[in-house]
Structure formats: structure tokens, C-alpha cells
Amino acid sequence: MEHLDDATRTELEAAAFRRLVKHLDEHKEVQNIDLMILADFCRNCLSKWLVSAAEERGAELDVESAREYVYGMPYPEWKEHYQQDATPEQLAAFEARQAQKRGNA
């Protein structure tokens, strides 16, 4: 992508981000804990990254607005309809992932 100008690269990155958000919206069965175990990020992380990017650019964006964008609805509504309780296996895998990160830090 080095051959692309900054504006084109930014447009492609933005399009890829929107596609990721759409993909996650189409796969609500994928729980945030699953994402955290496998990829060390989740929908909430994306929301926080949006807020951070806004702050870096002097724009105002609160976490709840960012979450609504990422989740496609207010976060409490998404949790009510789609979030499942983590299984003991998921919790153990998440803790193992966290322990691994601490060991590599």
C-alpha cells in the first residue's frame, strides 16, 4: 500500500473498518469474550479506539455514541438481546489469555 497516496489509503482503511463493523453486526452470535480470547480485542475496544481517534483529532465523540455506531444500536439494547453469559470454558480461556499477556509483558 506504500504506492497509494495518503487520502486513498485513508479511504481504504475506513472502508475496511466499516466492513469489519458490518461483519461483526452480521455475526452477533460471536460474543465479545470470544473475540477477546482469539484476537485480544472486541466491539468495546473498537468503540474506545474510535473515541481515542476522535480525541487525537480534536473531535468530540463519547463512548456511548461510539458504541452505538459499532453495535448498530444502544449498547444496553445489544447486551439485552445478544450478549450471553460467558461459559466456564470461555472464562478459563480468557483468563489463560490474560495470564499469557502478563507473562509476555
Rank of each mutant, 00 (worst) to 15 (best):
residue 62 D to S: 05
residue 102 R to V: 10
residue 94 F to S: 07
residue 51 V to E: 01
residue 51 V to N: 01
residue 65 S to L: 05
residue 67 R to E: 14
residue 53 A to E: 11
residue 15 A to G: 05
residue 2 E to D: 12
residue 4 L to F: 10
residue 20 L to Q: 08
residue 103 G to Y: 02
residue 6 D to V: 10
residue 76 P to M: 02
residue 101 K to V: 15
residue 75 Y to N: 13
residue 69 Y to D: 05
residue 75 Y to E: 07
residue 29 E to P: 02
residue 53 A to F: 13
residue 75 Y to A: 08
residue 20 L to W: 08
residue 35 L to A: 03
residue 5 D to F: 06
residue 7 A to L: 12
residue 59 A to S: 09
residue 5 D to H: 11
residue 71 Y to Q: 01
residue 8 T to S: 14
residue 1 M to R: 05
residue 56 E to I: 06
residue 51 V to F: 00
residue 76 P to H: 00
residue 26 E to W: 09
residue 35 L to M: 15
residue 24 L to Q: 03
residue 101 K to T: 12
residue 90 Q to V: 00
residue 28 K to R: 15
residue 70 V to I: 13
residue 36 M to P: 04
residue 84 Q to P: 02
residue 27 H to A: 04
residue 88 P to G: 05
residue 30 V to P: 00
residue 27 H to F: 04
residue 19 R to N: 11
residue 101 K to W: 07
residue 16 A to L: 11
residue 43 R to M: 05
residue 4 L to Q: 06
residue 31 Q to K: 02
residue 18 R to T: 09
residue 59 A to M: 13
residue 9 R to H: 10
residue 63 V to R: 06
residue 63 V to F: 14
residue 43 R to T: 03
residue 103 G to A: 12
residue 61 L to N: 00
residue 9 R to W: 05
residue 95 E to A: 12
residue 83 Q to L: 09
residue 1 M to F: 11
residue 101 K to M: 13
residue 95 E to K: 11
residue 28 K to N: 08
residue 17 F to L: 15
residue 60 E to K: 12
residue 41 F to R: 06
residue 4 L to W: 09
residue 97 R to P: 04
residue 69 Y to E: 07
residue 67 R to L: 06
residue 93 A to K: 06
residue 72 G to N: 03
residue 103 G to K: 04
residue 80 E to G: 07
residue 84 Q to F: 05
residue 85 D to L: 10
residue 98 Q to T: 14
residue 79 K to W: 06
residue 63 V to P: 01
residue 89 E to P: 02
residue 3 H to E: 12
residue 38 L to W: 12
residue 33 I to N: 00
residue 98 Q to C: 11
residue 7 A to G: 05
residue 29 E to V: 05
residue 55 E to D: 10
residue 23 H to D: 09
residue 105 A to I: 15
residue 76 P to W: 01
residue 100 Q to V: 08
residue 102 R to D: 11
residue 24 L to S: 05
residue 69 Y to N: 02
residue 23 H to L: 13
residue 52 S to P: 02
residue 74 P to A: 01
residue 89 E to H: 05
residue 12 L to P: 03
residue 73 M to Y: 04
residue 2 E to F: 10
residue 30 V to I: 15
residue 24 L to F: 14
residue 29 E to M: 04
residue 37 I to E: 00
residue 39 A to S: 09
residue 19 R to F: 15
residue 3 H to T: 13
residue 52 S to W: 15
residue 49 W to E: 14
residue 37 I to A: 00
residue 13 E to G: 12
residue 58 G to D: 04
residue 16 A to I: 10
residue 99 A to V: 13
residue 57 R to D: 13
residue 30 V to K: 03
residue 48 K to C: 08
residue 9 R to E: 14
residue 79 K to L: 08
residue 39 A to P: 04
residue 10 T to E: 12
residue 31 Q to S: 01
residue 95 E to V: 11
residue 71 Y to N: 03
